[in-house]
Simulated scan of single mutants.
Amino acid sequence: MKLWKTAWRFLPLSLLVLVLTGCLGETNLTALDPKGPQSQWIFDNMLLSVYVMAFVTIVVFAIFFIILAKYRRKPGDDEIPEQVHGNTALEITWTVIPIILLAILTVPTITGTFMLADKEPDPNVGEDTVRIKVTGHQFWWQFDYEEEGFTAGQEVYIPVGEKVLFELHAQDVIHSFWVPALGGKVDTIPGITNNLWLQADEPGVFKGKCAELCGPAHALMDFKVIALERDEYNAWVEGMQAEVAEPTETLAQQGRAVFEANSCIGCHAVGGVGTAAGPALTNFADREVIAGYLENTDENLAAWIHNPESLKQGNNMPAFPDISDEDMEALIAYLRSLSVKED
């Protein structure tokens, strides 16, 4: 009776976990809704493992309850049943069945491992295979399109239906690059180069995270993979390669002066000018979030510039608390002008 009461106490918690799991699916931060060949293989093998475990569980419990009912002690059973030791047929059976079950899991695991390890270029596009160098920082992601000649931050764009090769590095500590809807996780380790390939089978925005505890703001080290049709992807690349146009509005022009006066260009490259100590800002106005997780609003942007430590503990961006409201308004106007999308 006490066992049932305890189980009922945990029922609300179980329902809450179920609801929250559904919420994760809405942000694409789930491996249960695969959108690429890697994630589909992981999902299929996960289901196969569940089916095998369910089969074993059902069989074991069925035998348990049958024995419990058939051989339970009945009134008048005063004698000890005949003791039987060793049954060759049963011993062979419960040895062979696990071997068969392991073989069922082993074959797809081995074939899938070779598939995941295939880092060769996409045979469908040949030399046009997209290659991206990924560098993990505390606490943001840098994406270098070295063959195309530009750098992106926090958002990585890929073409739909093509195998994209990623070269993984870390600037400071160990991070882990993970896009659940597209594939498994691979660590980025200082001084070591790891490799990964991903493919998106349909256009969309797929959320990624760092899956290795890397500091106080580890939970906020998010990024996005944005999959576009090839022609849209090519247009985005051309926009990132193009020289950033001068702001046309007076307020944005004043904001550029504020940007340069505060040495922002020393950390944030714009159109290939500047360094990559912080995320590149060439397409800043096109991003939905800032700092990896904050909604890209003027209020959040101003709060981030004034005091980034209060919003993302342990990050390396310096605070600028002395920027006046007028200069902040102009600076935000300049950042809002940084877009590579066609009007």
Results as ranks from 00 to 15, higher is better:
residue 306 H to L: 12
residue 45 N to V: 10
residue 34 P to R: 04
residue 111 T to H: 11
residue 6 T to W: 10
residue 61 F to W: 11
residue 75 P to Y: 00
residue 204 G to Y: 02
residue 106 T to L: 15
residue 31 A to V: 08
residue 210 C to Y: 04
residue 18 L to D: 00
residue 128 D to M: 11
residue 230 R to G: 14
residue 335 L to F: 04
residue 26 E to W: 13
residue 85 H to P: 00
residue 246 E to A: 12
residue 311 L to T: 01
residue 8 W to Q: 09
residue 140 W to K: 07
residue 241 Q to R: 11
residue 140 W to A: 05
residue 222 D to E: 00
residue 317 M to L: 07
residue 141 W to M: 01
residue 170 A to M: 03
residue 148 E to I: 02
residue 98 P to T: 13
residue 198 L to Q: 03
residue 74 K to A: 13
residue 164 V to G: 01
residue 251 L to V: 11
residue 223 F to C: 03
residue 250 T to V: 11
residue 260 E to A: 05
residue 309 E to F: 14
residue 269 A to R: 09
residue 231 D to G: 00
residue 37 P to K: 05
residue 126 G to L: 09
residue 58 I to G: 08
residue 54 A to T: 14
residue 246 E to G: 05
residue 23 C to M: 14
residue 215 G to D: 00
residue 268 H to T: 11
residue 14 S to I: 12
residue 213 L to E: 13
residue 194 N to Q: 14
residue 229 E to W: 05
residue 200 A to C: 08
residue 208 G to P: 03
residue 272 G to L: 07
residue 209 K to Q: 09
residue 76 G to L: 06
residue 223 F to H: 04
residue 274 G to F: 02
residue 262 N to E: 12
residue 163 K to T: 10
residue 309 E to W: 07
residue 229 E to H: 10
residue 266 G to Y: 03
residue 159 P to Y: 11
residue 248 T to Q: 12
residue 283 N to P: 02
residue 23 C to L: 15
residue 237 V to D: 03
residue 138 Q to C: 00
residue 60 V to A: 15
residue 115 M to H: 15
residue 45 N to C: 05
residue 87 N to F: 02
residue 73 R to G: 00
residue 186 V to K: 05
residue 323 I to D: 01
residue 74 K to G: 03
residue 310 S to M: 10
residue 146 E to G: 00
residue 287 R to E: 09
residue 168 L to V: 06
residue 311 L to N: 05
residue 229 E to D: 12
residue 271 G to V: 08
residue 147 E to I: 03
residue 266 G to F: 08
residue 64 F to M: 13
residue 214 C to R: 08
residue 189 I to L: 06
residue 245 A to N: 06
residue 241 Q to V: 01
residue 37 P to F: 12
residue 210 C to Q: 10
residue 199 Q to W: 03
residue 103 A to I: 13
residue 30 T to C: 06
residue 93 T to L: 14
residue 41 W to A: 12
residue 131 R to S: 06
residue 110 I to A: 15
residue 165 L to Y: 04
residue 56 V to P: 03
residue 290 I to A: 00
residue 138 Q to G: 00
residue 24 L to K: 10
residue 278 G to N: 01
residue 269 A to C: 12
residue 30 T to N: 10
residue 181 A to C: 07
residue 285 A to Y: 02
residue 211 A to Y: 07
residue 22 G to I: 08
residue 54 A to K: 01
residue 41 W to Q: 09
residue 6 T to S: 13
residue 87 N to A: 09
residue 24 L to M: 14
residue 140 W to Y: 15
residue 311 L to I: 10
residue 342 E to I: 11
residue 79 E to L: 06
residue 286 D to A: 09
residue 189 I to F: 00
residue 16 L to S: 12
residue 50 V to H: 04
residue 90 L to H: 05
residue 301 L to Q: 10
residue 299 E to D: 14
residue 154 Q to N: 15
